[in-house]
Simulated assay, not measured.
Amino acid sequence: MVRQAASAGQKRTIRYYSPEAEVAFCGHATIASGVALGESDGDNTYLLSTTVGEVPVAVKTEGKFKIAALTSIEPEYQLAEAALLEQILKLLGWQTDELDPAIPPANAYAGNWHFVIAANSKERLDDLSYDFDGLKQLMQAENITTLQLIWRESDSVIHSRNPFPIGGVVEDPATGAAAAALGGYLREAGLIQAPAHISVHQGVVMGRPSLLEVIIPTSGGITITGTAVAI
C-alpha cells in the first residue's frame, strides 16, 4: 500500500492504493503514516480524513520507536451466507471440518469488508495455497477486500493470514483494517468480553512478521496499535 496525504497540521486527507486498486481504508498504511507524521511533525494526535470517515491516529515516542494507534470507524458484521462460504472454501482448498466452530465465518467491517474464517489448527492456517484468479473474481463480485484467515491460539493471541488478490497481492503481511474488523466482529457477536486486548501475529509464514495490538472497548471504534520501519 502507498499513501497520499494532503494539507498540513493535525488534520490530513489520506487515500490508499494497492498495485491494482484503490481501497477505502488501510490500517497498516495508517499506522505507517502516523509514524511518519510523528517523525516529521512530532508526537500528537492526527486526524486522517478517509473516504469512509475520519480516523484519529495518536502518535507517541517509546524509547527509540514511534508508536501509532488508530481508532477505526464504527465496526459491523454479517454472518456468512452458506453459499458464499462454500465457494470461498473451495477456492482455498479448505474443508468445513477444518474450521473452528467457536468463531463462525462472517463478513466483518471497519472501513472495508473482510471475510473472517477461523481454522481449527495452526497447521491448516500455515498451509495456504489458493486459486488466485478465481478468488479475485469472487471477492470483487462480493465487495470483499481481504480474507481474514485466523487461528486463535488463546483468548488474547490470534494468528492471521490475509489473501488480497483484488489488490494484486497474494498475501498481505499486515492488515490493520482487517484486525479492526475482526475485533469489532468478536465484540459485536459476543465472542469476546469487552474491554479486551488481543495480539494479532501476521506475516510470519511469509517471512515478514508483524504484530498488531487490537484494543477492543465496550463500544465504538476499535484501536489498532503498532510501529513501522523505513524501507
Rank of each mutant, 00 (worst) to 15 (best):
N143V: 08
I198N: 00
L91S: 15
Q193R: 08
K90H: 13
E76C: 12
A230N: 13
S72Y: 02
P165Y: 01
V229W: 12
G207M: 12
L79R: 12
A179N: 09
S18G: 06
R208Y: 10
E153S: 07
A5M: 10
L48M: 14
A24V: 03
A194N: 06
L47P: 00
S154N: 07
A119M: 13
Q4D: 09
T71K: 14
Q10C: 05
V200M: 13
L147I: 01
V157W: 00
G183W: 09
K90N: 12
T145Q: 03
G184Y: 09
S121M: 12
T45N: 05
A6M: 05
V35R: 02
D155W: 02
A108I: 14
F164T: 01
Q87P: 00
E98W: 15
P165C: 03
R12F: 04
T51A: 13
H197D: 09
V229P: 01
S160K: 04
M1F: 09
S18R: 00
A8S: 14
G34D: 06
N143H: 11
G9M: 03
V55T: 05
Y130S: 04
G203R: 10
G221D: 09
I216N: 06
L70A: 10
P209T: 12
R187F: 07
V59N: 04
A108N: 13
I67C: 08
A181F: 11
Q87A: 08
E22D: 04
F115C: 05
K66D: 00
P101L: 14
A102N: 14
V2T: 13
Y46F: 13
E20F: 04
L99A: 02
L48G: 00
P19T: 06
T13L: 07
A24K: 14
V229R: 15
E62W: 04
V205L: 09
P56T: 06
S18I: 01
V23D: 00
S7C: 05
E171W: 02
G203M: 06
V57A: 14
G176N: 05
G184N: 08
S49N: 11
I117W: 13
L84F: 13
L211G: 01
K122I: 13
P19K: 09
R15F: 04
A196P: 03
I14V: 15
G27V: 11
H28L: 08
P75S: 11
P101S: 15
A58T: 15
A230L: 14
A194F: 08
V200T: 08
M206R: 10
P19Y: 06
V35D: 04
P19A: 03
L91F: 13
G111A: 07
V170Q: 07
I166K: 08
D126K: 12
G184M: 08
T227M: 13
G183A: 10
S160A: 11
